[in-house]
């Protein structure tokens, strides 16, 4: 459905995208995962024909983004980073307006948005500007879906939304995918990667890795340990000085430590070092990496 080949884009001296190569298959939920400034928005804007790439080719639904502007615009749904709603129009008016803009009616595609719309229907007379983040997000999604697009581009739909609403939102995307809609979504929250079929980890305009979340985690090559102890902050500083350490980051209630070598004695050596340093209580366990571990490891390279 989406193919990008060697996409480059610069704004003056700032490089927004460097040699992006990826493809999104039909019916897939594809995630662009990366912090602000990674180039996610620029890539979306190229794909929905709002900006032109400096070089490289991109096709959406088999159509070239530089030449088939009208055809692409007709078949995609797009939700920009800020929830692009008319703040002074009511929920209902926003939805109706976007329906007519896309030459359709709310009734014609109600089936598709029903699940989502019923949640905001009690507030249909309320102005969009008076809705909370979670509700605006739902309304914006309804508006992007109203013309039953074949492919949906959602730019950071969960940013600034609380964790509970975020989970609900991903559940909605799951149901849309089951209906056969191809979805491309971006997010700065690494933990949301697991909700996607495939992801591209992005940083500073580069795609660090494009694969399924499982494969990306499996390709993490170093031994990874979670450490817990009483004095967490002191432990973190000490671990940084440990010779065998490759990297060490705070990870919620534990520190994640990667070792420089996979050698058999490495773990035992770490244990005895901890004892010597006075962390006799330290709990050490070998763990599987999460996407955030992978991202930081890839970013180091």
């Amino acid at each position: 459905m989406v193919i990008c080949r060697n996409i480059n884009k610069t704004y003056g001296e700032v490089v927004a995208l460097r040699d992006i190569n990826l493809h999104v298959r039909k019916g897939e939920l594809f995630g662009l995962i990366g912090p602000d400034g990674a180039g996610k928005t620029s890539l979306f804007r190229i794909l929905v024909t709002l900006i032109l790439p400096d070089s490289g080719q991109a096709r959406v639904n088999g159509l070239d983004v530089t030449t088939s502007l009208k055809e692409i615009r007709r078949s995609v749904g797009y939700m920009p980073g800020r929830f692009s709603l008319y703040q002074d129009l009511s929920v209902e008016e926003n939805l109706k307006f976007f329906a007519t803009v896309f030459n359709t009616s709310v009734e014609a595609n109600y089936e598709l948005i029903r699940d989502i719309y019923v949640q905001i229907e009690p507030f249909r007379k309320r102005r969009a500007g008076k809705l909370s983040g979670g509700m605006k997000q739902k309304l914006a999604l309804c508006c992007a879906l109203i013309h039953s697009p074949e492919i949906l581009f959602l730019d950071e739909p969960t940013t600034g939304v609380d964790p509970v609403s975020r989970v609900e939102f991903w559940d909605m995307l799951d149901r849309l995918r089951q209906r056969g809609i191809t979805i491309m979504v971006s997010t700065p929250y690494m933990d949301e990667a697991s909700r996607c079929n495939r992801i591209a980890l992005m940083r500073d305009g580069r795609a660090l890795s494009v694969d399924t979340p499982e494969n990306i985690r499996a390709s993490f090559s170093r031994p990874l340990y979670a450490l817990r102890s009483a004095g967490m902050y002191a432990l973190l500083n000490d671990l940084r000085g440990y010779e065998g350490a490759h990297s060490c980051y705070a990870f919620g209630d534990a520190h994640h430590l990667t070792l420089g070598s996979e050698a058999d004695g490495a773990e035992a050596e770490l244990r005895s070092w901890l004892d010597r340093k006075g962390y006799a209580d330290a709990q050490l366990s070998r763990i599987e990496p999460c996407i955030e571990d992978c991202f930081m490891e890839l970013a180091r390279q």
């Binding site: 912090p35 602000d36 700065p188 940083r203 902050y233 980051y249 705070a250 991202f295």
Partner: peptide
């Protein structure tokens, strides 16, 4: 929400400043 959208490594450095 001081760390919204900040990349993972920098987010951690930010917390060290808080510490």
């Amino acid at each position: 929400e001081p760390t919204g959208g900040v990349d993972p490594a920098t987010r951690r450095q930010f917390w060290e400043l808080i510490y």
